[in-house]
């Protein structure tokens, strides 16, 4: 049996709302350690991987590891029907592995709403990716910035064109674009420390200058999720997809892997 409870408006609900513009169906794996979700957008440009450790939920129980496909858009629609103050329970029993039960309980416990959502096949949304600890050292540059600043950069650039070029070297981290009506270049002088301050742009890992071109549509989606958190961490490599990461509590994370645009 798997069962988690959370308050209406919790971070999981916020994240599910924020990923809707990219994914419809997600593969969810549950273990005693927590709730993880993987999803691939229909164009195979963005892979999303998140892990919510058990301690971020109001209560969490998972007797046996389980994996299920969830139609995220339908689930979010159901969750939206909850009222302020409701406690939301998500449950799957071993007897019935065909659907997931979502329950809302009013704060005074006088009203309960039960809903069943059918599970779907989401096996194609599983991707074999290395453990992050192995991958981090493969990125040429990793920097952190306030997520509000990241969103602002993406919005400012998308006025001019659909693409952004992110360049990182020891001296500067820049976001630039060039379109028919003009160009925009936003430069940040980074701090260099392993312990980034919340309000600044910090270069945490640097093995050499790197630049990548990315579609701003996907970057804005990443930025939307990141604004649920204070800071966003961005990794660039010419051999790996761009990585956008936000930390959830001590051990949790939400990571986007975005394929770049490349000139043939």
């Amino acid at each position: 049996m798997f069962e988690l409870t959370m308050a209406k408006g919790s971070i999981l609900q916020g994240v599910l709302e924020a990923i809707l513009d990219l994914v419809n169906v997600a593969n969810v794996d549950c273990s005693s350690k927590g709730f993880s979700l993987q999803a691939l957008d229909t164009e195979h440009v963005v892979f999303l991987s998140l892990f919510f450790p058990s301690e971020v939920f109001r209560s969490y129980r998972c007797d046996e590891d389980c994996s299920m496909g969830i139609a995220i858009a339908d689930m979010v629609d159901l969750l939206r029907a909850s009222n302020d103050g409701d406690i939301i329970t998500i449950k799957v029993t071993d007897q019935n592995f065909e659907d997931i039960t979502i329950t809302f309980e009013s704060p005074d416990k006088t009203k309960t709403t039960d809903m069943d959502l059918q599970l779907v096949d989401a096996r194609s949304h599983r991707l074999k990716i290395s453990e992050w600890h192995d991958m981090e050292s493969e990125y040429q540059a990793i920097f952190c910035m306030p997520s509000a600043q990241f969103m602002l950069n993406c919005k400012s650039l998308s006025v001019i064109d659909d693409d952004v070029v992110i360049r990182v070297n020891e001296e500067v981290i820049s976001f630039s674009t060039k379109g028919k009506s003009g160009c925009v270049n936003i430069s940040h002088v980074p701090n260099k420390t392993d312990n980034p301050e919340k309000a600044s742009v910090t270069l945490t890992h640097m093995r050499g200058p790197v630049s990548l071109t990315l579609n701003l549509r996907y970057m804005k989606s990443c930025a939307k999720v990141s604004t649920l958190f204070d800071q966003v961490k961005i990794g660039l490599s010419t051999k790996l997809p761009l990585m956008v990461e936000c930390k959830i509590a001590e051990k949790g994370y939400i990571r986007y892997f975005v394929a770049p645009k490349i000139t043939e």
């Binding site: 691939l40 164009e43 440009v45 194609s124 991707l127 074999k128 997809p241 892997f257 490349i262």
Partner: peptide, 14 residues
């Protein structure tokens, strides 16, 4: 102009 790549070249689908 640059072409959008997919993730298939980076990750192996299971």
């Amino acid at each position: 102009s640059p072409t959008q790549k997919t993730l298939d070249r980076f990750f192996q689908s299971s």
